[in-house]
Computed example of a mutant assay.
Amino acid sequence: MVKQLSLVISLVISILCASCITNKDIVYLQENTGKAADSMQLYALPKPYRVQTNDQLSINVKAIDPELVSIFNPTNISSSGTSEQTLYFNGYTVDAHGDIEFPILGKLHVLGYTTDEIEVLVKEELLKQYFKETAQLYVTVKLPGLNYTTLGEIGTGTHVIYKDRVNIIEAIAQAGDISKAGNRKDVLIIRQYPDGQRIHHIDLTTIDAMASEFYYIQNNDLILVKPLVRKTLGVGQTPLQTLSTIVSLGSVLTGLYFLIKGL
């Protein structure tokens, strides 16, 4: 009986020790063994964001004579900022058909366009329908920052970063980082596309993540971090927690042994 009990205790201790969260589980962008270098070349570049339905756009038209373009900037968004709240009331919303309603020009189809392409489109239509080349038009199109949402073993909520290019490490830092119990080896990115949503996976514990096409996030991305199996099982996340679990379990098994022996 003693031998069997010792075997069970040894097995339980081995399993619990193996369940501790190690540095390999929580350190970001670890270099591959044997491939360490002073620097490395990264080839992945962020793909330009393409406008989706319900996006808010800030469109500002400038010319030599500001009075000529005042009708296109009725709310003077450039001076009031391009916050999401401001654009909700004063910007241009992409409707379910992928169109925006622009003064004088009417409906413009912008679904799937980049902001640079929309700038060209608006300028060309203005020159075709309303202005001459001598007006020297300058059109800018902006999104109200880069919006994304985080869920799971990370600070939960919707976040905005006022940059055109944001990588997933920056996004996670803005959200408050992934908890120690979060699975950094399989972070899910749920991304919007014109034909629907797709789920992508990225391992943030390897330096190869920086070359992934999903290393840079896009507007309206959902970043989902699942818990590690260790947390799901309810075992210790640190050696001290694991030791505490082992001592508690050992006490129970010892008490059970003496109880059976006394019968």
Rank of each mutant, 00 (worst) to 15 (best):
H200E: 11
Y138L: 05
D99F: 12
V166T: 11
N219T: 02
K132N: 15
N220V: 01
Q136R: 14
I104V: 15
K142S: 07
I169C: 07
P103W: 09
I217F: 10
K231A: 04
T206N: 13
I154N: 06
K185L: 01
I178M: 07
A175R: 02
D221S: 06
K123A: 05
K185D: 02
D99G: 06
R184K: 15
Y138V: 08
I168E: 10
R191M: 08
N167C: 09
I223C: 02
Y138P: 00
E213W: 00
Q192P: 00
Y216V: 09
K123C: 03
I161K: 11
P103S: 14
H159N: 12
L108A: 06
I172G: 06
Y113K: 14
Q192D: 12
Y216S: 12
V166F: 03
L228R: 15
P227E: 01
F102C: 02
I104N: 03
L204P: 03
K163H: 05
L224T: 02
H159D: 10
K107A: 08
I223D: 07
R198Y: 07
E133N: 12
T115Y: 02
V122K: 06
L151R: 06
Y216Q: 10
L127E: 13
F102M: 00
R230A: 15
H109S: 08
A173T: 15
L111V: 07
G157C: 08
H109M: 02
L224K: 10
F131I: 11
I178T: 04
R165E: 15
L121H: 09
R184V: 01
G106C: 04
L146K: 05
Q218K: 08
N219G: 03
S179C: 01
D195N: 13
G152V: 00
E170H: 03
L121A: 02
K132I: 11
F214M: 11
E213A: 14
E170M: 10
Y162L: 08
D164K: 15
E170L: 04
Q129W: 01
V160Y: 09
K185N: 05
M210N: 02
T232Q: 14
V122A: 03
A171C: 05
L188S: 06
R230F: 10
M210H: 00
K185G: 15
F214R: 15
P194Y: 05
S179G: 10
V122N: 02
L224I: 09
T114H: 05
P103T: 12
H109P: 00
T205K: 14
G106Y: 02
H97P: 00
L137A: 12
N220G: 00
D203M: 10
D177R: 14
K132Q: 15
T205M: 07
K132M: 07
L111H: 10
I118V: 12
Q136C: 00
R191T: 06
P194Q: 07
K107Q: 11
Y162N: 15
D164A: 13
Q197P: 00
A135R: 07
T232S: 13
V160F: 09
E125Y: 04
E213V: 04
R191K: 14
T140N: 13
L121R: 11
R184Y: 12
I118P: 05
